[in-house]
Design a protein around this nucleic acid. Structure first.
Lengths: 212, 212
DNA sequence: TAGATTGTTAATCGATTAACAATC
DNA sequence: TAGATTGTTAATCGATTAACAATC
């Protein structure tokens, strides 16, 4: 990559939110927006919006603001959305099945193409037309189908070993729904969804609010 | 609340992770741990651990470190875990059903006691022994059953109106799985799980890692 | 007592906000 | 041209890390 300035993870995590708001604006036919107007909608400062965007380029026009469609497409490019990504779900339990059935991913080009489990009662099943395969077949499947992302929805006890195996098969991105941290090489991208942690945070905040 | 120093959200979000690691240590019978040892396990600095904990009190002993069980229980108290919290799931779709079936919550005292939907095909169904009620009954149910937390797993279009209704019924904490921000009074605690945003962040990180 | 490790203050680092010249 | 709003530098704020005296 030519550009070497380090983008902070705080900025990266805001990009999908910008993308979402711009998509909504686009849908209601709004053509241009200033950082000030957008900041009011999103509840952040206009300064932060301009700083964030200028990490990637000057997308606006002085005196005018930002063209919504153009900015939307630029953020789309930055995020790497637009091309199709192939994903597998590892663990065909409740969460795994729910994610397979979650149609929002596909409309963004994120396609689940295989599901894996060790449970014989689940193997052979079909969820939204996608087959549940024996976990034994995972390695070959990943290699033959150029899988980009693995979604890990298996119990705590098997999470680390399975993640290790995925990395050995060449997976570069893991979306981890297991209540456990994975400890993988820095060259592997991991995004955690620790549900119980999130709920505990909410409990704390709820009590904090009530104490006032 | 007597103590007025403002705890940052960054600290709060780390508490469940401490709690998780301490629970694991407790399970394997470890009695004491120093901030240095814990920092190595958790991949953060010992200084940060001591700073974080000292927001709430001095839980350690100079020259010794921290008693694992004591610290575990203190963090449990800080988070407000231990008592039972009653929750409802609003939206009996894929994600809603998966969360009802997710047994980790109950073992922490977070109990789902009702499910609501507008879809007549779902109403009357039972998920893990919990009935799906008509959304019309939600208001009365919340008031009669002292519900603490609502888990929102409904489509984007209805999210804002439903959240508003929940707040009118007296709900103080909302766990929002809708791909949309809710815009509620500051007195309501909200924790968002924006799945598509998270996946997009992962895609960006995966590509960034590959570019190196 | 000597060694270890906390609690806490001070220093550093990074992220957010403010300000304003550049320019559409 | 005058007004608006960006891109960008500078100031501020907050969070993390380092350092060390207190003390178990």
């Amino acid at each position: 990559m030519a550009d070497n300035k380090k983008i902070s993870v705080a900025v990266i995590k805001r990009l999908p939110r910008y993308y979402r708001y711009l998509g909504d604006l686009l849908n209601v036919g709004i053509v241009r927006i200033s950082s000030k107007e957008l900041s009011e909608k999103m509840n952040i400062t206009a300064s932060q919006i301009r700083q964030d965007l200028n990490n990637f380029g000057g997308f606006g026009q002085r005196g005018y603001g930002y063209n919504v469609e153009f900015l939307y497409n630029e953020i789309k490019k930055i995020l790497g959305i637009g091309k199709e990504y192939k994903m597998i779900v590892v663990g065909a339990g409740n969460i795994g099945q729910a994610l397979v059935n979650y149609t929002d991913f596909e409309s963004n080009g994120f396609k689940i193409v295989g599901i894996f489990d060790v449970n014989p009662r689940l193997i052979g099943m079909t969820i939204r037309g996608i087959e549940v395969y024996d976990a034994d077949k995972m390695e070959a499947f990943i290699k033959n189908n150029e899988i980009d992302i693995a979604i890990l929805t298996i119990p705590k006890t098997q999470a680390k070993a399975t993640a290790k195996k995925l990395v050995e098969c060449g997976i570069k991105g893991i979306w981890n729904f297991s209540p456990m941290d994975l400890e993988l090489p820095k060259s592997i991208a991991v995004e955690n969804v620790h549900l119980t942690d999130g709920l505990m945070t909410l409990i704390y905040k709820t009590n904090a609010v009530l104490d006032k």
